[in-house]
Design a protein around this nucleic acid. Structure first.
Lengths: 326, 326
DNA sequence: CTGTTAGCGCGTTCAC
DNA sequence: GTGAACGCGCTAACAG
């Protein structure tokens, strides 16, 4: 039989209300009785039941974290950031994968509602109205993490992807690149990627920006596509929408007997560990992946505790780390 | 005001018990009244409160997942496996990182207890008695995932690491390697790694197995250590305890002007995506990372539903994928 | 097949 | 400073 707050009360010869008080520090309790209670708790090995607590207080100290796929390096890093800050503020996270499927995402918001989570941290490739409606219906505070919401209807943490795309191209331009390509996923796959592409295009003037589409952006398929493109087009600079695509580019270049950075310079997005674990080490537009998660979670705690928030859509800084591929 | 089961009952002109029945399929309900209830639920947008449900039923349909660090590729993949199967059986997971610190691990088992999780999936580098005691005290079913418990006191899912280490060395031996090294972490860092080393050593006969210790096994520090070792010792075969260490080995070999696989053959553990994203593609002892998670979760569901279990310590198969580094 | 009645373990008034 | 009593939303007997 699990020991309850009543058992502690009896053991300490006080009422359960008093026990509750010393546990939660809700009110002043005489030092002596407080000690009696604490001793009783220790003696009985009492653990407050978080479920009962959640029912009574209507707060579960649990956060729903909805992501496309934890097994992606970028996402995992972010989740780690979320969890660290959650722990710091005494929250726990329920993690679910949506595979970026709208129906599933909407359904997951519903189950988070049933779970009575205090808040949600949400990441997706494309934010649709359906999801916004789901948030609205569930009446749960949401923070978007590394997710584009052009209309900024929901609190969010992101970088300026347009500017980042622009910076990447600018970097190559300053390296005297003439024929630049942007390697990315299919259009509509990811609003973040699309936004970067727009930024990249905005920096080109009379020249044309080559755009290489690689499906979902997986290394294996991208490799072939990029190689084929390279054989037909004399590129000398590539911006890749992810480390994985950057690596595919480097290998594609090498496969056709050309050289990075001598013949083709490559700069990629993200800066996962991959970027420094390959040869040549990759120049990147670094994204603060861990911070995306950490800052999102911190913002959410503010929302939950009615702390003043001076900025509901936080823009973190990206930066260029020049290495050996440019 | 959130709508409760009472509201639905009133709307459908039945008792709350009946509503509960149609929601849970706990008993037969006349088709007509069932429909009335379902309509009422839809009309009101009712969602059952999982917290109240958990308190009443003493089952939360929540699983605690305790891992060293989600941001490690290996772990993230495993978590994905856990979550997929959890979803399939209508469970959710609370994810926490322990950083492999015993105190924290013990404490986390305690908070899982408070959260009233139905079960725990546990992964760690070194399993100590303290943790076993914590499981015992919390009285929660636990499944160890990719974690060595020599005494098999707790249900677990793992590969035969001893045999895997042996197989790796054997593979190099058959390739005519004479001077073989095992690149791993410090002794005691990870029982899994230690076990593999033992297996590796068991396969050597009169020859000596070189052992290269690389601290925590991080690429950046390992690279220097391995390079230094290589300069002093004429190795021609290396078994690395992880993909990351395998890659460090390949680069170390290249750094001193030698060649993989020509001069030195490299085989590594794990087979994360990294292994096929580098040049040369790495020969590996592949571990079923996703399956570790998936099978663990499945085993746990059996434990929770009192299904018959024919094997409490499941041994998954590893296999060698020969690629370009050997 | 359906309704009534107890709890589940805790937070939170409101008195004392 | 402390205790008694109620309610959070639901499941699970038990009747009928």
């Amino acid at each position: 039989m699990p020991v309850t707050i009543y058992d502690v009360a009896r053991e300490a010869k006080v009422s359960m209300a008093t026990v509750s008080r010393v546990i939660n520090g809700t009110a002043v309790v005489k030092d002596e009785t407080k000690k009696r209670v604490q001793d009783a708790i220790a003696r009985l090995g009492y653990r407050p039941n978080a479920v009962a607590r959640g029912l009574a207080s209507k707060r579960t100290r649990t956060i729903g974290v909805i992501v496309p796929d934890v097994s992606a390096a970028f996402v995992a890093e972010m989740v780690r950031g979320i969890e660290d800050i959650a722990t710091m503020y005494d929250y726990h996270i329920i993690l679910v994968n949506s595979d970026a499927q709208v129906d599933r995402e909407v359904s997951l918001v519903g189950t988070m509602w049933e779970k009575q989570v205090d808040g949600i941290i949400y990441m997706t490739n494309v934010l649709s109205q359906k999801e916004i409606d789901a948030f609205e219906e569930a009446q749960i505070p949401v923070v978007l993490c590394a997710t584009e919401d052009p209309e900024r209807r929901i609190p969010s943490v992101n970088i300026d992807n347009y500017r980042a795309g622009r910076d990447a191209v600018n970097f190559l331009l300053e390296k005297e690149c003439k024929e630049i390509a942007f390697v990315t996923t299919e259009e509509g796959e990811s609003v973040v990627a699309d936004r970067r592409l727009q930024g990249a295009q905005s920096r080109m003037r009379d020249q044309e920006l080559h755009v290489i589409r690689t499906g979902q952006g997986r290394y294996e398929v991208a490799l072939g596509i990029i190689r084929e493109y390279l054989e037909k087009h004399p590129l000398d600079g590539v911006v890749a929408a992810s480390d994985e695509l950057g690596l595919a580019t480097i290998h594609a270049v090498q496969d056709i007997g050309r050289h990075v950075p001598g013949d083709v310079k490559v700069i990629a997005f993200d800066n996962t560990r991959l970027a420094t674990m390959i040869r040549p080490e990759m120049t990147v537009i670094a994204q603060p992946m861990y911070d995306f998660g950490a800052v999102s979670m911190r913002l959410l705690t503010k929302l939950l505790q009615d702390e003043p928030v001076d900025n509901y859509s936080v823009t973190l800084l990206h930066n260029i780390l020049e290495r050996k591929s440019t």
